[in-house]
Amino acid sequence: MAEKTLSSFEKFIKYIDSILPLEIELIINNFDRFIYGVGITLELTILSLIIGFLLAVPMAVARSSQHAILSPIIWCYTYVFRGTPLLVQTYLIYYGLGQFQFIKNSWVWDSILSSAWWCALIAFTLNTAAYTTELLHGAINDTPKGEVEAAIASGHSYFGRIRRIILPSAFRRAIPAYSNEVIFMLHGSVVASTITLQDVLGVGRWLNGRYYLAYEGFITAALLYFAIVFGITRIFRMVERKYLKYLQ
């Protein structure tokens, strides 16, 4: 008689459970954790993308300015961060900085650097800022010469030129490449699970470890990431349709 008390949704789950060799019920029961994991993943990804972008804009302008000191310094920064794995950068900040006693004694340690979340955010931000700087630098370099000359002829100052002519068109040109960077950053955010954070993959690993499973946690994580990537591509397609209309 217990059968009758089951809702149709639970029956459906039972049925799926019986035909698939996976513990679907376990996933459903722990789904709130996965939702929480999606929250952590999105939080880290979006925050680092926003801060990284804000850092990247002035750096890209400086890098394209061919300033004798600033330009090479920024080139070095982007070269190092683009040439090394995000995993190593994150380890360097999270595990590495604890080596120095003076950092451990300072106020930054207790409030920021001892927390895995902050370390992940710092590493991700520095990483995406480097990629975004190079991407914007490329877009700025591709500005048609005539536009810049027209701006000079109409009496724009250097910063007026950058603000009103160069950056708006560079941003538009950078949209397709930036959508790739967003997806790369989302993929890169799995590194957070290696420094104890419970992001999507972190929850998946926890589930597998707790119930001694081989697939369930990872497959759920994979599907969730896939769904997020799908959403991001959709959003960018809309953005491109709006801002790149004059090119289509």
């Binding site: 890169g188 799995v190 590194v191 290696t194 993959l201 990872f218 994979a222 990431y225 990537v229």
Partner: peptide, 10 residues
């Protein structure tokens, strides 16, 4: 669509 680490672990 799926991060590399997820596939490696899987």
């Amino acid at each position: 669509g799926v991060p590399d680490l997820v596939l490696i672990l899987l």
